[in-house]
Design a protein around this nucleic acid. Sequence first.
DNA 1: ACTTACGGGACACCCCGTTCGT
DNA 2: ACGAACGGGGTGTCCCGTAAGT
Lengths: 196, 196, 196, 196
Amino acid sequence: MQDKNTRRLILESLYEDMQVNGFQGLRADKVIKKLGITKGALYHYFPDKFSIGYAIVDEIIGPTFIGYWLPLKAYKGNPLVFMEKSIQSIQKQFSEKNVVVGSPLSNLIHEMSPLDEGFRIRLQAIVNQIHQIIEQALARGQQEGIVSPQLKPAELAWFILSGFEGSYSISKVAKSTELFVENLNTLKQYLGTMKI
Amino acid sequence: MQDKNTRRLILESLYEDMQVNGFQGLRADKVIKKLGITKGALYHYFPDKFSIGYAIVDEIIGPTFIGYWLPLKAYKGNPLVFMEKSIQSIQKQFSEKNVVVGSPLSNLIHEMSPLDEGFRIRLQAIVNQIHQIIEQALARGQQEGIVSPQLKPAELAWFILSGFEGSYSISKVAKSTELFVENLNTLKQYLGTMKI
Amino acid sequence: MQDKNTRRLILESLYEDMQVNGFQGLRADKVIKKLGITKGALYHYFPDKFSIGYAIVDEIIGPTFIGYWLPLKAYKGNPLVFMEKSIQSIQKQFSEKNVVVGSPLSNLIHEMSPLDEGFRIRLQAIVNQIHQIIEQALARGQQEGIVSPQLKPAELAWFILSGFEGSYSISKVAKSTELFVENLNTLKQYLGTMKI
Amino acid sequence: MQDKNTRRLILESLYEDMQVNGFQGLRADKVIKKLGITKGALYHYFPDKFSIGYAIVDEIIGPTFIGYWLPLKAYKGNPLVFMEKSIQSIQKQFSEKNVVVGSPLSNLIHEMSPLDEGFRIRLQAIVNQIHQIIEQALARGQQEGIVSPQLKPAELAWFILSGFEGSYSISKVAKSTELFVENLNTLKQYLGTMKI
DNA sequence: ACTTACGGGACACCCCGTTCGT
DNA sequence: ACGAACGGGGTGTCCCGTAAGT
């Protein structure tokens, strides 16, 4: 019981550090020193640094990002309306910290995809799941006649995901929350034209 | 005596390595050793690692990316047509290597923006210049009545940039050139609706 | 498991090297390599080079030099007699090695005082303690009427310390043990004139 | 003509740096950069680092320190009176900078004597010359009956030199000009007892 | 009488990981 | 379930020195 908590505590601290410094810049030594624990504790739970990174992806980043979109699966109304609300809620949660560190999902994709397949496959799996949720919701909307039959669900789902990623990127360089909000507004407007 | 050439040679090799490993993962010593150049030469041109990174941004990444969009400034026709062609040419140049390492501009933004203001400011300057070129072209199009008066040039310019960044991201995780091409097609279609 | 011993072993080896090469000339890596110890062990006990230097001052030089004079505190007879004996014993211990490397206290004072306050303060504390021991002994001697009431204990204590330092210096340049012995004889004679 | 000046300029700058950092801590690269000249100039005048150190000793330290005592050679009065005046003038010149960096002669003796015979021999030659001047002056005083016949000129000359060295040492650790002045006062008093 | 380009060997420090305890 | 001692390979940086030119 103490077990689970210590592991989680370590993992979350490492995650915090990784958000700023990246995986390669993550310094396990320093993080545990700040936590007041020792190497023994760290290596008790994680055999090496990569297993830390994988655990962060599997246990924190994945659940968090998929969790944002899961409700769309159960949602019965117009998926485009749902997405507009989703965007709004993400816009509201978007803080000064976010604009600095950006999206941990994006960051890892850029940093680790070319370096390690273990990372890439895990990150791809997350992205694919989100893509599938959006795609299926759009397809359902088409079947129910509340979403434009013109659009291709798979393609638009990618475009939406791409829009999020891109918004994170440009707001991060510009260090501007406003830019993030405005750009997602543009995306929102575009999605609005697909409603029936 | 081969001043400019040696420096440039070193810089380009370092740039290649950085595209794969990131700035933090860049191992300057190893790269120059491969070139048959010694540390003395490296230190002669670059007093420290950050000066390498800054030089890569200032002398390679900046000119390259801004160079892509510079012709738009001189272009006299419909800017949206120009951009469709630009996208097409980028799509054609997009290779297997690109899908693995992604966009060096994107990568540096994600990795270094939160870590070092020197990087962030340089990268922001590049992005801002491209944004300005697009924005001004769109505004000109509006004045000439060949671009929809509804759209807001600044906002759309960001959306376009964001679309590129996002396309790089999702194609990088998915390791799929097709996804890159398809997603930019979606963007292209969207831009097409703005033409008059 | 051999915690204390390993640390002490490392420290003493480093001390030996520092006596010859000075603190700046001390090459920690090489010294421990000779001992068959690795950098991991060194870094475990000493996070950086200054912590090595400080430890040498605090744990070796300080105790050694103060230890020479500590018996004077407990001594009940004429302090000037004690000092004559002290000088004699130092003269006898003075070896060929000493004349080459000189006094580690002197050496560090000259090398590190202007460079680092951490060193200077530690060295000053050692010198001050010795000074205080001598001063108090002289004052006691005056109260007991066995030491000339003319002399000022604090000033003479400094003169004695200065005499030692100076003797180390001149014998070191001249590479002559005889000079060390003779010069302290002159000091001894001078002190003899203060007795009552 | 320009030649001689440049060489001297370089030498004096290097000397300044060496006073603070010692010979091993002397960074020729940095000094010349501060002077706005390049490696070529430095290595035009000095083949290597040791020749710099030797030149500093031979051309700056030697002449300066011997210069302090040369007038004693020509002096016709009581040498002990001359020395009292010398001490007074040194006390007056003694500044805040001196108390920090100490005596360059002392510093080099402590740092370089055990490391390099080239330095030791040069430094010894300087010390010996000063010693000889003092010794001969004292001997002359004895012949003229104005200096106590009891004292041994050679020994007292060493004691005087040692007194200076020691005073530099203790004032340097204590970072106290007062201590330097007071301690030389004690020496002055001692010398006064030798007059006839 | 200098300058620029370059060679190249350290050297301090970092930090991942292992082992042996309890 | 965790702690202390230790292994050990880098990694950026420093900085002395050389060669070829002008």
